[in-house]
Amino acid sequence: MQETEATREAAQVRRNWLLSLPALCLLAAGAIGPLFIMLVYSFLTPGKYGNVEWIFSLDAWRGILFTRDIFDDTLKLADAHLTIFWRSVRLSFMTTVFTFVVGFPTAWFIATRAPRWRAFWLFLITIPFWTNLLIRTFAINQIIRNEGFLNTALIKIGVISEPLNLLYTDLAVFVGMTYVYLPLMVLPLYAAIERFDHRLLEAGYDLYASRLAVLRRIIFPTVKPGIIAGSILVFIPSLGAYVTPRILGGGRNMMIGNFIDLQFGQGRNWPLGASLSVLLLVVVTAALLIYVRFANRDGGHG
């Protein structure tokens, strides 16, 4: 009796696997396949007119940090690459911090409205998602360019006499990314704050905690899962951002995403593009793991 029960269960498990096989194959081909191709290409030699030649080479990996001198063929540290990496990390970090600074009060505001109004405020937060990213980014471009709305208005009211040179700077990229990724910070924060027991605030005040102490010692630790989720959702796409730095940063203020794109276009160095992509993937995964581990260390509440 027990025997047949076990066999039947095993058969059921086998059937479940068989039934999900087509979907699994599709996922494997669609998700892992391209990654695998990228990994292989990063060890090949660039072709003359793009594409690759099937000759094994570590040049693409070396090329991430070093360039070969045109004249004497020696390896030199590629300052330009480092600048791009540094700009990517710096801007992504700033974007994460700033979306938190702006997003936390916003999420708090929404979560403390009457329940029937919360849906309305959340709806407003998600409206930007309805428009194409490219169009929204061009809209910012129109606002901050020299002859744009902002400069025109400031000159008209006499605050400045010369237009501020905002477009095609790191600042423009930072502003653009903050705008684009803010909802991704607000939504997880809202979810965490909504579950926050507001009676804990009274308990804190009652026990002589000032407003700042209540924020630091009670609110932040309790909504930490939301802070972590929001930071991940903002930091990771920021690091790989392409459209925003392309339109607001111009050709000079590149981030990793644009740099990778360059390798597959004008640069005609597909292996370098592939190695950069793999590197980005590895860095993001590592950062994610460390962050989650670090965040869960003191109490895995929530």
């Binding site: 804990l200 102490a213 309790t222």
Partner: peptide, 26 residues
């Protein structure tokens, strides 16, 4: 003046001892 709340309102991210110490720390 201190309060014992109806639903206790203990700090969920702290231990028993940390909860008790909170007011004194503040």
């Amino acid at each position: 003046v201190n309060t014992v709340f109806q639903n206790y309102a203990l700090f969920p991210h702290m231990t028993v001892a940390q909860n008790i110490a909170f007011g004194l720390e503040m």
